[in-house]
Design a protein around this nucleic acid. Structure first.
Length: 483
RNA sequence: GGCGACGUGGCCGAGGGGUUAGGCAGAGGCCUGCAAAGCCUUGUACAGCGGUUCGAAUCCGCUCGUCGCCUCCA
């Protein structure tokens, strides 16, 4: 079965056909770096990360571009967000940008989101944005007024195609601010004249100023991916006005389709309400990562469909944590069984189960990246694997290796859900730790044979305090390390 | 006021005209020195009211409710 995706442009699920066979050009709206990232960003970019991972797993060569907005845009109070951040932190605007961009990248790395191939910064693409604005003026889709340039929405009949909004309806709503210098209230800025005190400003054919919010994506996406590319991703809450304006000006400029597919992610709420600065209910990614492993946060995000909303609560994350430990159980157990030495052959039939799980996983992912269902199939596998691994019949090394390979391929490769950290960076330390724990397990086994349960329980309890849980089974004691 | 989503068992969340989602929590049992983990068994779910249909949680209409966007926002 081939990949099908839900395209917001048509509001329908469609077969995915890239422009160039085997290649995918993908653009995702990145963050404005004026504060630390919160878990809402985590949801959007982890969803996009899994889409990229799956496209690559499916054999596509993906070019993944995600911008960094470091120009700053006007708040309703007339204040620039980045300038506001600078004033708050008493530093230069570009220090704000650098600080929070690095913080953002740290958070994304910690969440195991694959780095985009190109992360263009808006401030470094002002000439491209001016060029795009000039072209729109030439083509009669934009006009200058008092040193600012506006896109003329009435010159582009497809305006409203993505979000489904009609200009007339906007006018009727009566909530569009009236700016006398605009021809239509809905016209949006491509370039804004800057007052002298505005720190971030550049030369332009229209005097000193700075670019409008939407034009950066047009300039950078077309520069790195071409005038028409395959996928545009981002958060659903940016569909209007940002994506709508972006698409209108891009297509007006090139006369071609902008992005063939629009994949937008649902928003994240906290205990039922959206995160916002004013409510003070933002949860920083960095703070959450102090409490939970990245994989738990990823499983939490991926356990709901990317297009849907998701509500974060303590109960939900704790449930995700328990679920994750169960999901990863057979992998850890198989690894330990392998290091302990396994049988030469068995007739567990696990090869067929693995093949079946993989086929189901792929079928679900092919259906608009249905991670909740794909993960449900993995849990079905966990159930079957546990039965085999804990049964009376010895399991062959080849069986264990096949299981580990499937986990590496799907659970880690596509979803990024295998435990990171211990053992991966420092092999000798991990081996030493493994040896020490096994030594304690042996000592405890002797104590148990002698019915010296005080000693055996002491070993178990103290290891538990160190984050190492011991589990007695038929074939001896296994351990697991808390993350 | 306009546009748009959505309302699923104690909780989180898929699915979607007749046939098991899955996870967490709970109950009983097996195993265990005791635990833990695992295994087996166990859940009268689909907001309400109408309609279409042999049959609706799934389609249509209305009502109620929640949320998002319409101003910067992932």
């Amino acid at each position: 079965m081939a990949l099908n995706v839900y395209n917001y442009l048509t509001r329908d699920k469609e077969p995915f056909n890239p422009i160039t066979e085997g290649e995918v050009k993908m653009y995702v709206c990145g963050p404005t770096v004026y504060d630390h990232a919160h878990i809402g960003h985590g949801k959007t970019y982890t969803s996009m990360d899994v889409i990229v991972r799956y496209l690559r797993y499916s054999g596509y060569r993906v070019t993944y571009v995600q911008n960094i907005t470091d120009v700053g845009h006007i708040l309703d109070t007339g204040e620039d967000r980045i300038l506001k951040g600078a004033r708050r932190d008493r530093i230069e605007p570009m220090q704000v940008v650098e600080t929070y961009m690095r913080s953002y990248l740290d958070d994304m790395d910690a969440l195991k989101n694959t780095r985009p191939d190109i992360m263009p910064r808006a401030a470094a693409h002002v000439p491209e944005q001016i060029e795009a604005t000039e072209k729109l003026i030439e083509l009669g889709h934009a006009y200058e007024a008092n040193g600012s340039v506006y896109f003329d929405v009435k010159s582009w009949e497809n305006y409203g195609r993505l979000s489904g909004r009609k200009i007339e309806e906007q006018e009727e709503s009566g909530r569009i601010e009236t700016r006398t210098e605009k021809r239509n209230p809905e016209d949006f800025a491509l370039w804004k004249a800057a007052p002298p005190e505005h720190i971030l400003q550049w030369h332009s054919p229209w005097g000193r100023g700075y670019p409008g919010w939407h034009i950066e994506c047009t300039a950078m996406a077309t520069k790195y991916l071409g005038e028409t590319f395959d996928i545009h991703g981002g958060g659903l809450e940016n569909m209007f006005p940002h994506n709508e304006c972006e698409m209108a000006q891009s297509e007006a400029m090139t006369g071609k389709n902008y992005s063939n597919y629009w994949l937008l992610t649902g928003s994240l709420t906290r205990d039922g309400v959206k995160m916002s600065k004013s409510l003070g209910n933002s949860l920083r990614i960095a703070d959450l990562l102090k409490q939970y492993p990245a994989e738990v946060l990823r499983l939490f995000v991926l356990s709901a469909h990317y297009r849907g909303p998701i509500d974060i609560s303590d109960d939900a994350i704790v449930a995700a944590q328990k679920g994750w430990e169960r999901l990863v159980g057979p992998y850890n157990q198989a690894k330990q069984m392998l290091s302990a030495g396994a049988a030469d052959s068995d007739d567990s039939g696990i090869d067929a189960i693995i093949a079946d799980t993989k086929a189901k996983f792929i079928a679900e992912m092919d259906d608009d990246f249905n991670t909740p269902k794909a993960i449900a199939h993995l849990f079905d596998f966990v159930h079957k694997a546990n039965t085999i691994l804990n049964g009376d019949v010895p399991v062959a090394a080849s069986t264990l290796e096949a299981l580990v390979a499937m986990y590496d391929e799907l659970v880690e490769g596509v979803l990024g859900l295998l435990p990171s950290g211990a053992g991966q960076g420092d092999e000798t330390a991990a081996e030493r730790q493994d040896g020490l724990i096994k030594l304690l397990i042996d000592l405890r086994a002797q104590a148990r044979v002698n019915k010296d349960y005080a000693t055996s329980d002491q070993i178990r309890d103290q290891l538990k305090e160190l984050g190492v849980s011991l589990e007695d089974g038929k074939d001896g004691t296994k351990y697991r390390i808390a993350s």
